[in-house]
Amino acid sequence: MPGMSPEALQNSMQKWMDWIGGIAAQGKLVDRGNRLANEGNVVRPSQVVTDGPYIETKESVGGFIMVRAGSLDEATEMAKGCPILFAGGNVEVRPIIRM
């Protein structure tokens, strides 16, 4: 996070660790996930491969975690504590479809 002081960076990291730790303490953390890199490739129909995705897009996925929840509503409640919300970001909550 460019421009953040060491203290602000430590404070931000502590908020993330507290949020994820709280979910883990409830036994509901499946995978703490990770941040995603900015670079990559996009595969399109007809096997066309381009570089990207690009941060200039309106929205991008910056990372993920997986939680165990009894319902979409329960997972959504957990997401309400995500620190990214206090930095202007948003959280997308989706169920996993197991085949």
Rank of each mutant, 00 (worst) to 15 (best):
G27E: 15
G21T: 13
R35K: 12
S5G: 07
K15C: 00
L36F: 15
D31G: 04
W19N: 02
A37H: 04
G22P: 10
D31Y: 04
A25Q: 15
G22D: 07
R32K: 12
E39K: 03
G40P: 03
G33M: 08
V30A: 11
D31N: 11
R35P: 11
V43H: 02
M13W: 11
Q14V: 02
L9C: 05
G33L: 08
W16C: 03
L9D: 07
N34W: 04
R44D: 12
L36A: 05
A25G: 15
A25M: 15
P6L: 08
E39A: 04
L9W: 08
L9P: 02
M17Q: 15
R44L: 15
A24H: 09
D31L: 07
N41W: 00
A8L: 01
A37K: 06
I23A: 05
S12Q: 02
D31H: 05
N11S: 02
N38E: 09
K28D: 09
E7R: 04
M13Q: 12
Q26Y: 07
Q26T: 13
Q26N: 10
V30E: 11
G22V: 08
I23E: 07
K28L: 08
R35D: 11
E39C: 02
L29E: 10
K15F: 00
M13F: 14
L29M: 15
A8W: 00
M17Y: 10
L9H: 10
A8T: 01
N38H: 13
D18S: 09
A25E: 15
I20P: 08
K28V: 06
V42G: 03
K28G: 11
V43L: 04
R32M: 11
R44H: 15
G33Q: 07
Q26R: 15
G22R: 06
V42I: 14
L9N: 10
R32P: 12
E39Y: 03
Q14G: 05
L29F: 05
N34L: 05
Q26D: 14
W19D: 03
K15E: 01
G21N: 14
E39P: 02
E7N: 03
M17H: 13
G27S: 12
G21H: 13
W16R: 04
V42R: 12
I20S: 10
V43N: 01
G27Q: 12
M13T: 10
G27R: 13
M13C: 06
A37C: 05
M13G: 07
A24E: 14
N41D: 01
I20C: 06
Q14E: 07
N41F: 00
M17P: 04
E39R: 03
L29K: 11
N38L: 14
A25V: 07
P6D: 13
A25T: 14
I20L: 08
S5N: 03
Q26A: 15
G27H: 09
G33V: 08
L29H: 13
N41H: 01
W16D: 03
